[in-house]
Design a protein around this nucleic acid. Structure first.
Length: 948
RNA sequence: GCCGGGGUGGCGGAAUGGUAUACGCAGAGGACUUAAAAUCCUCGGAGCCCUUAUAAGCUCGUGUGAGUUCGAGUCUCACCCCCGGCACCA
């Protein structure tokens, strides 16, 4: 039986590589959620094999790393022994579920024959300059006692144990994954992955495109020779940059190279850096059940004696140090534009810095009457929009125009007139109120373009919003002609927006809505695109045009920034691949010669982590002390080990050629099997394993080891199974369902069918043991039906069977297992209705069932006289011509509403259908008004369109 | 805040623009049985009208509101809500 699933490699056949994310053989054992992905890949691989493909469907063990080591430490056994034991247990559990793995290709990342090649890949990275040493502070987990990569964090905590991480300076090996950032984003396009997974990766890599710009600095006592480089995505707002902020890290560097900062500045920098070491750069809620706390703390900062020159305005602007600018983002320094950036605004408000509006929100009226007309003169106009509050109540003054529009008081600003004066005049003219007080200007102006039909002009209106209040009810008379145009309304606060949203027949009203939003939103800042204002020669340009033009003028360079950091690759733990480097006093870091690989992980007495940042391997002096391969002098081995993710970054390649002794995989086998056709696994790996593996694969492509640029052509993510109470399964809560128990009680076929039937594969769904009972019932009905077999084909069963052949095959390939099984149930229901099944039909049905229920189908196959194994039989084929039944029912509609059905005989014409429908009194009664038109969709619907 | 994915019975969910709720679970009624389990059969969106009661009939129903269409769960626009990812990223 084990030979049944041995992989074949026939160059004339198509190949399918179906891959599961291989497990850590942890000691915890499986719960019912774990096998779901394995069942899916098993169904898929069995189906593809029956279709005649060479199928590679292997399994292996990701056995290095913290989980295995922590388990071993806790249970006081050597990790190797623990791993062996756990693998044995895992294999038992997998075997009772009937998976078709080719165990001849089993791999284990802790096998020296395997990790020899993990080390080899590291050496190639080192030789290409993609692995380098750094002693920048890294994330340190005090509980796991090891450094971690950014990807190993959940917010600010260790992803494994939840402990708050600290920053620690340690010599580290780091992989230059950022060199591949663009390609990692770009090639996502070519992959058949769900969009949200791609988005996750794009978010994680976090590319932002902008400009970098040098600003000239004036440092007291040092003249004007210094410069600072800033990064911005909004170069169009340069004229509004009223100050510059540098991160504490950058300020520290300046102090170290001779800047004589004030005591106050020095104190701030020291305190800020200390705070960052302690708190890292991010904070987050520790418990997932608590809503994350707002991240922004109140901004602090300190002014320096340095000024920078705004290259657009020529103004000298102050330079601040503040920890709201991060040292590791961009250049560690920013130009602050308080008018158009929330963070800069907050800072400016606190330190009373000038706010200059340089981008105006831009509204283009697109309605038919008001759309700007080409070739017509554009008239520029400035208007004021007044939001006027009642003297005693929380009500606002609006004008109810006779043409249907209700809005705020609006008026043009005459030449030489002040904005506030003009709105006061307007209020008096239109409503008679005279005692008005201006409370505040509502931010910068908006720009609206529209056509004014009564003036036959295109207008570009620069509008300013103002918030005013009536002091009392003092009023003068309003001219009669004004009263004829509109009446006055006092509107409750919560109804204002509804009036505005009704819109205006005489042009755009969205700018009014925006003033209202500014009034009712605390700290409103416009950070979107628009048209440039207050920017001299660039006024009137759009944000994107402005960026280009300003870049040219001030010689700013296009620049790209990433959130992705280089991959911290050292772990100060025992259970991992030794990093194959020898440190020599004379030669520095020297790679272990390839002929000496693997560098074996030595046996130790105590493999507990030291906690000092030193690996436990340090103590094994006869392993550590070696000759330098270059100069022959004394050297010491690198004692850090590789992270968990190393072995899993290329394991799929090894399955193609597990015994290869000259490279990770031979070119011939790689060419045959690459890429992985379907990769099945959890979404939790979307930003770690799946980015790391893509990075290594691209590197291996660059050095000619592999022939494809991407490792995993298609990815199907498996949805979690929750406990019956809707919560996560956990030992602590005691709601874990064990697959062994389920298989024992209901059989592995019922278990498999239930997990595939419970809903869409990628959905998270709660377990329901009653559902397994249902799956079991389905299997029992099939078994019972096996005594209804007759030698001759049953013609009336043909439509259902052929439709089932089509649907089950297509659905398996699309990972829509739930609807495939539903179709198998529908087909069984049909067989039971008919009462018997032809022998060949029955065998076809069993073949469709085989990928889902390998045991039962094999048994019934033998009972039906099938030769050899059902699993090597051919997948049935269908004929569309057999889909149609002798008689079928279609809906009859009148004006699109269902009014009955008619039963047609195969091949009926439209006229026959129509006559039949009209003969039915229940339908005919709807047709008395006269039929205007008939829509006939054969096999679907007959629709009479009548006068209405 | 930005980005992505979703809102269909009591539940999981189905539906190339064509009878919404397939298939299954749970539920109700019935058959078989001394009884229970198992098994089998039948019925399950809401409301209205009429009736002893049913059936038939009508209206409304896929988050809300508009639109396109002979016909919309499906297409277009606006809005509401839920889930997930990232986040002082300049």
């Amino acid at each position: 039986d084990s030979n049944l699933y041995q992989t074949t490699e026939d160059p004339k056949k198509k190949k399918t590589f179906v891959l599961d994310m291989f497990p850590y053989p942890s000691g915890e054992g499986l719960h019912v959620g774990h096998p779901k992905g394995y069942i899916a890949s098993d169904v898929y691989s069995r189906h593809m094999r029956m279709r005649g493909n060479d199928v590679l469907h292997p399994m292996g063990w990701d056995a290095f790393g913290l989980p295995a080591e922590n388990f071993a430490l806790k249970n006081k056994i050597h990790p190797r022994i623990a791993v062996e034991k756990n693998i044995k247990r895992f294999k038992e559990q997998l075997s009772i579920l009937g998976f078709d793995y080719d165990w001849k290709r089993e791999i284990n990342t802790t096998d020296p024959k395997y990790y020899k090649w993990t080390q080899w890949i590291f050496l190639q990275l080192f030789k290409k300059g993609l692995a380098y040493q750094s002693d920048e502070p890294i994330n340190w987990c005090p509980s796991c006692m090891t450094g971690l990569a950014n990807e190993d964090l959940e917010g600010n905590s260790c992803e494994r144990c939840g402990t708050l991480v600290e920053k620690k300076k340690l010599p580290q090996w780091v992989l230059r994954i950022t060199d591949y950032a663009d390609r990692l984003i770009e090639d996502l396009k070519t992959l058949n992955w769900a969009e949200h997974i791609k988005e996750l990766q794009r978010n994680w890599i976090g590319r932002s495109e902008g400009h970098s710009l040098q600003l000239a600095l004036k440092v007291p006592g040092q003249g004007e020779k210094h410069k600072v480089e800033i990064f911005t995505t909004r170069l169009d707002t340069l004229a509004g940059a009223t100050f510059v902020v540098v991160s504490p890290e950058l300020a520290d560097r300046w102090i170290n190279i001779g800047w004589k900062a004030s005591e106050e500045v020095k104190k701030y920098v020291v305190a800020a850096l200390k705070q960052r070491d302690k708190e890292h750069v991010r904070t987050t809620a520790l418990s997932a059940s608590v809503a994350p706390a707002p991240l922004e703390k109140e901004k602090t900062g300190v002014k320096t004696d340095i000024t920078a020159k705004n290259p657009l305005t020529g103004e000298d602007i102050p330079v601040f140090v503040s920890d709201y600018v991060l040292g590791n983002v961009g250049t560690g320094a920013i130009m602050a534009v308080p008018a158009h950036d929330d963070r800069d605004f907050e800072f400016a408000k606190k330190y009373k810095l000038p706010i200059k509006y340089v981008v105006a929100p831009y509204f283009i009226d697109e309605t038919e009457n008001s759309k700007s007309r080409p070739g017509v003169e554009i008239k520029h106009r400035t208007i004021g929009v007044g939001i006027v509050k009642h003297w005693a109540e929380d009500k606002y003054l609006m004008l109810d125009w006779k043409n249907g529009w209700t809005g705020f008081i609006t008026g043009g600003v005459d030449k030489g007139e002040d904005l506030a004066d003009s709105i006061r005049r307007e209020i008096k003219e239109e409503t008679g109120y005279t005692n008005v007080r201006l409370l505040e200007h509502l931010g910068g102006p908006n720009i609206s373009d529209f056509y004014a039909p009564h003036k036959k002009l295109n207008q570009r209106v620069l509008g300013y919003g103002m918030y005013l209040e009536l002091i009392d009810a003092t009023r003068v008379g309003v001219p009669k002609e004004e009263l004829e145009k509109h009446s006055m309304l006092w509107v409750d606060k919560d109804r204002v927006l509804a009036f505005l949203k009704k819109g205006s027949p005489m042009g755009d009203s969205r700018y009014s809505e925006m003033y209202w939003e500014r009034l009712t939103t605390e700290n409103y800042i416009y950070s979107g695109d628009g048209l440039l204002i207050n920017s001299g020669e660039f006024n009137g340009l759009s944000s994107s045009e402005g960026q280009e033009a300003i870049a040219k003028k001030v010689k700013a360079k296009k620049a790209t920034n990433y959130k992705l950091r280089d991959w911290v690759f050292s772990r100060q733990r025992y259970w991992g691949e030794p990093i194959p480097i020898i440190h020599c006093v004379k030669c520095g870091a020297v790679p272990v010669p390839e002929k000496d690989l693997p560098v074996l992980l030595p046996e130790v007495e105590s493999y507990e982590p030291s906690g000092t940042g030193e690996s436990p391997l340090v103590k094994i002096t006869d392993w550590v002390n070696v000759k330098c391969p270059e100069c022959g002098g004394s050297g010491k081995r690198e004692t850090n080990t590789m992270p968990q993710w190393a072995g899993s970054s290329w394991y799929y390649l090894r399955y193609m050629d597990p015994g290869c002794e000259t490279s990770p995989v031979s070119k011939k086998k790689e060419k045959y099997w690459s890429p992985v056709d379907v990769y099945v696994g959890g979404i939790d790996h979307a930003t770690r394993h799946l980015i790391y593996a893509r990075f290594w694969h691209k590197f291996l492509y660059d050095i000619g080891t592999v022939s494809t640029v991407e490792p995993f052509a298609r990815l199907n993510t498996v949805g979690f199974i929750l406990a019956e109470d809707g919560r996560k399964m956990s030992k602590r809560v005691g709601n874990v369902i064990n697959p062994d128990d389920m298989v024992e009680e209901y059989g592995s076929d019922a278990f498999r069918i239930y997990e595939m039937f419970m809903g869409p594969f990628e959905n998270t769904i709660a377990w329901n043991t009653k559902g397994v009972v249902g799956a079991r019932r389905f299997i029992e009905r099939i078994c019972k039906f096996s005594d209804k077999i007759v030698p001759e084909t049953i013609p009336s069963l043909e439509p259902a069977l052929h439709q089932t052949i089509k649907k089950v095959g297509e659905d398996i390939q699309a990972f829509k297992f739930n609807t495939a099984i539903s179709q198998l149930m529908i087909c069984l229901n049909e067989m039971e209705t008919i009462g018997s099944v032809g022998k060949e039909q029955w065998k076809n049905y069993l073949a469709l069932l085989a990928p889902f229920a390998p045991h039962v189908s094999e048994e019934l196959w033998g009972g039906a006289g099938g030769n050899s194994s059902i699993h090597t039989s051919e997948w049935p084929s269908y004929e569309e011509s057999k889909f149609e039944k002798e008689t079928y029912v279609i809906a009859v509609q009148v004006n699109g509403k269902s009014r009955g059905t008619i039963t047609l005989i195969k091949g009926a014409s439209e006229v026959e259908a129509k006559d039949l429908a009209e003969a039915d009194p229940a339908i005919a009664k709807w047709l008395v008004k006269g039929v205007k038109k008939v829509v006939y969709i054969p096999g679907k619907v007959l629709n009479f369109v009548i006068q209405s």
